[in-house]
Design a protein around this nucleic acid. Structure first.
Length: 566
RNA sequence: UCCGGGGUCGUUCAAUGGUAGGACAGCGGUUUUUGGAGCCGCCUAUAGAGGUUCGAGCCCUCUCCCCGGAACCA
């Protein structure tokens, strides 16, 4: 990595500056601790990747730690299957957790005790109004709020009710615990927010032990404090919650420095749906075939699509952190994927629209059949260490249909009568003629080869204008590529309606790959990517033996190829 | 309507009050044992109006635009 690259990847951003400043000032005793707090109600997607790299890399950079804490305060939507999935995806991304993850639910008892403290202090009260009433009383933007009739009930009364709430004496939704702050506050979050609600649902970890559950606001800052988090980083929509975050911590006056919340802009991408709710809907209604469907921007979907984790990390590091609402172009992410894949993906040959190419002067063996030669071809021109493979070559080949023109257009340098081209890694061949069917369509091209040019270069050093890919007709293996016309649908999240996915049938298109590809890829794990010469990057699908997913450039799925071949 | 946060090339991220820079995209060229690879070049920006200053993207005032906030979601 050059110095320039280093400078770019360590571009200063306001959060990093903040932490650096805190360390210099000795805030938190020079300590740094962050946390990544997913709710286990879905799988991680590309949007989370930014938060993950911010939280983990910042801690790394300043010698601190980042906790993985599941924010499991809402039993309605959460499930332990998501816990395992998130841990696995995190590890894949490059952030394996050390030991067991943490859970907000582990702090339920402590949170409860603290809530009693607030009640005793006259800073919280139990309200038994229905939730429409509570909402109406909150007022509105620029409009005053109305205080609950229970607001000034004696602490002892609220305390008794709160204990009965916990004991399960009241129906779901009948009572809540509210913080007593200011019903006229200009920040709506501080108009006596809800701290606890009654909800009889099975919690994925605490089971039926609790019938009351803390809300996000009551749980989050306190969990941070329990864990000794110093910098609690979250996205911009929590900006107005920061006052409440601070308020709770102030009331509890816990020892040590209080954690501090800092907000930054979430990652949004063009042509990508990152609403967890919408993703869950697509999975639930069968529009896609699971959270790892390669059409989804989930981490496991991208993985199956061939995105290297390193590319995602580099992308996140590059875009940095700001407070500007923005939407990055998917092309930028793809450029990081390409750069990574250029160095790591093995090259193979495959033909989409086969046309027979007969080498008329190819020798035959004793049995009268054309002999078969095995040519050694490098796996990656950019990386010698990737070695080489043996590819069968014989007298009957398949080439790309548009790699031949009976009457060449201007600047067309590939095969046409009389022209010599290179068959990649094989021989220089010269077109001597072609055959057509009754309709005049070219069905077979004839050529002679230069036996001296084995490997692709002639001893006399003569050059050819073009190099083409090929497969041996007798050795070609049938494969197919999945065609997802509209993988990335919505330009704007709000427009990501279900309609947008109408045409999502994974049609596939036949592909003839060079021999041995089948064997080479039969046991590859998800995410193994090859670059088919001229066709692009394809990830081998682990579930379907010879199915490939296009990795990048989906928007112009085939048009770029057309451009290059036309 | 009230509160808060934002506004720099097409997109995004930069720029101690001192030459507005990079990447992606686009366009053009050039190369190459296939490029969607490489290399070279081009293109385009400080929302507006005042003010302070020798000097303003940066500081002040006003205006405009965008985003978030009134879940017993996170």
């Amino acid at each position: 990595m050059s110095e320039l690259d280093e400078d770019q990847s360590t571009a200063t951003d306001f959060v990093r500056e903040l932490v650096r400043h805190d360390i210099e000032q000795g805030t938190f005793g020079g300590r740094v601790k962050t946390r990544f707090p997913p709710e286990p109600n879905g799988y991680l997607h590309i949007g989370h990747a930014k938060a993950i790299t911010v939280d983990f890399e910042l801690a790394n950079e300043f010698g601190g730690l980042c906790n993985l804490r599941f924010d499991d305060t809402n039993p309605d939507t959460e499930d332990s299957s998501f816990v395992d999935g998130i841990i696995a995806d995190l590890a894949w991304l490059g952030y394996p957790i050390d030991g067991e993850p943490l859970y907000a639910s582990d702090y339920f008892e402590q949170l409860y005790q603290w809530a009693e403290l607030l009640i005793v202090d006259g800073k919280a009260y139990v309200d038994d109004q229905d939730f429409e009433t509570i909402r109406a009383q909150r007022g509105g933007y620029g409009k005053p709020g109305i205080e609950s009739p229970h607001r000034d009930a004696p602490p002892a009364h609220s305390l008794e009710l709160f204990r009965r709430m916990r004991a399960g004496e009241f129906a779901d939704g009948s009572h809540v615990l509210r913080a007593k702050i200011d019903m006229q506050h200009e920040n709506m979050q501080l108009r006596d927010p809800i701290m606890y609600r009654i909800r009889r649902a099975h919690h994925h970890r605490t089971g039926d032990q609790w019938v009351i559950y803390p809300t996000y606001d009551w749980a989050h800052g306190q969990s941070d404090a329990i864990e000794g988090v110093t910098h609690s980083l979250c996205t911009l929509e929590f900006d107005s919650h920061r006052d409440l975050y601070d308020w709770y911590l102030e009331q509890l006056s816990l020892p040590g420095d209080r954690p501090r919340q800092t907000e930054f802009a979430r990652l949004e991408l063009t042509h990508t749906v990152t609403s967890k709710r919408k993703l869950a809907t697509l999975v639930a209604d069968g529009t896609v075939d699971g959270w790892d469907d390669p059409r989804l921007p989930t981490l496991r979907g991208l993985r199956r699509r061939g995105y290297p984790a390193a590319a995602i990390r580099q992308f996140c590091a590059y875009i940095g952190i700001s407070r500007t609402n923005s939407r990055h172009q998917i092309e930028l992410l793809e450029s990081f994927v390409r750069t990574e894949l250029n160095q790591t993906a093995q090259r193979r040959m495959a033909v989409l629209n086969p046309l027979h190419l007969q080498i008329t002067d190819w020798p035959t063996g004793d049995d009268g059949q054309p002999i078969v030669e095995h040519l050694e071809i490098g796996n990656n021109p950019e990386n010698e260490d990737d070695g080489a493979r043996q590819v069968a070559f014989s007298g009957e080949l398949l080439i790309e249909h548009d790699d031949f023109m009976a009457e060449p257009a201007p600047k067309y340098f590939r095969l046409s009568p009389g022209k010599e081209v290179r068959l990649r890694g094989a021989f220089l061949v010269t077109c001597t003629g072609f055959e057509t069917d009754a309709d005049g369509n070219v069905i077979r091209v004839l050529a002679t080869h230069d036996p001296e040019s084995r490997g692709g270069s002639a001893p006399d050093g003569r050059k050819v204008k073009s190099t083409m890919h090929w497969v041996s007709a007798a050795h070609a293996v049938d494969a197919h590529v999945a065609l997802y016309e509209r993988l990335f649908t919505a330009e704007v999240p709000g427009e990501a309606t279900d309609d947008a996915f109408d045409d999502l049938n994974p049609n596939s298109r036949a592909l003839l790959t060079e021999c041995k590809l089948e064997a080479a890829l039969a046991d590859t794990p998800a995410g193994d990517v090859v670059q088919f010469e001229r066709l692009g990057y394809f990830a081998h699908d682990p579930r379907q033996p010879l199915l490939f997913h296009r990795t990048v450039g989906l928007r112009d799925e085939w048009s770029n190829i057309q451009k290059r071949t036309g």
